[in-house]
């Protein structure tokens, strides 16, 4: 019943489910079962995507969006990695920050949009701030939890080899937890994309989300669907990039 599935069979069924999805879509649009204005045919969506990139400079919007995600996510990591590791390594540091961090996790980041707009106006700052707030508290918590799972024997071994606390953190705890940190970053980057689209839809004139809101005004459903596809593709690409980084940076995990 729970026999594993071979690679060829998985490939076939994986492609099959998508073929079915597009097949239903093409058929429904072709036979006029759906309103063409609301659900354009897939071939039209792909043609529009092509047109957006090569005739209407959509690439610029995409780059702006990528830039926002990377900038905000980079800042979040720059704070969360050292803080999360220190909180996981030293209970007294956790005691200081954990009550603060865990409270913020329960505040939905989008609820800050009105106040962020009042504070920062409509430039880049409120978008970066939203992404930062949306990601950082989860990232800190994940990294702290991973750091706590570093085995006590590793720490004690380092201590009996003559390490001081600083050396233990930098040379044992951090390298030991690093693969898990990269995994946590990979998970949270997906969340950063979600907040990016929210920020761009609510208050922006540039970026993928803004393009989609413009398209809505002119009833260009094909452009909206293009935006969705591009966001999905970018998310997938970044995920693959992190997976590759993980494989290349930690060869010792592959060898068992």
């Amino acid at each position: 019943m729970r026999a594993p599935v071979g690679r060829p069979q998985r490939m076939i069924s994986g492609i099959g489910i998508w073929a079915l999805f597009f097949g239903v879509w093409v058929t429904a649009s072709g036979l006029g079962l759906v309103n063409d204005l609301l659900v354009p045919a897939p071939q039209k969506v792909f043609a529009t995507t092509w047109d957006l990139f090569f005739a209407r400079d959509f690439g610029g919007d995409v780059l702006i969006s990528i830039g926002r995600v990377l900038a905000a996510f980079g800042m979040a990591c720059a704070v969360a990695v050292p803080l999360g590791v220190m909180m996981g390594a030293f209970p007294w540091i956790e005691a200081i920050f954990a009550p603060f961090v865990s409270a913020w996790r329960y505040l939905p980041a989008p609820s800050f949009i009105p106040i962020l707009l009042m504070w920062f106006g409509t430039g880049e700052a409120p978008k970066l701030a939203l992404l930062f707030i949306g990601v950082i508290f989860f990232l800190i918590t994940l990294i702290m939890d991973h750091t706590k799972t570093v085995r006590e024997e590793l720490v004690e071994t380092a201590l009996t080899l003559g390490a001081n606390p600083r050396t233990v953190v930098l040379r044992v705890i951090f390298p030991s937890v690093l693969p898990d940190i990269v995994t946590a970053m990979r998970q949270m980057l997906a969340m950063a994309w979600t907040y990016l689209v929210i920020a761009e839809i609510v208050a922006s004139t540039t970026g993928i989300g803004a393009m989609m809101m413009r398209a809505r005004r002119f009833l260009n459903t094909d452009e909206i669907l293009s935006g969705i596809i591009v966001i999905g593709a970018l998310g997938l690409l970044f995920d693959l990039a992190f997976a590759t980084l993980h494989r290349l940076a930690f060869p010792y995990l592959r060898t068992r």
């Binding site: 085995r151 024997e153 590793l154 071994t157 044992v172 390298p175 030991s176 690093l178 930690f250 010792y252 995990l253």
Partner: peptide, 8 residues
Amino acid sequence: QAYTSFDW
């Protein structure tokens, strides 16, 4: 008793 090699 537990393995304490630094895997990295």
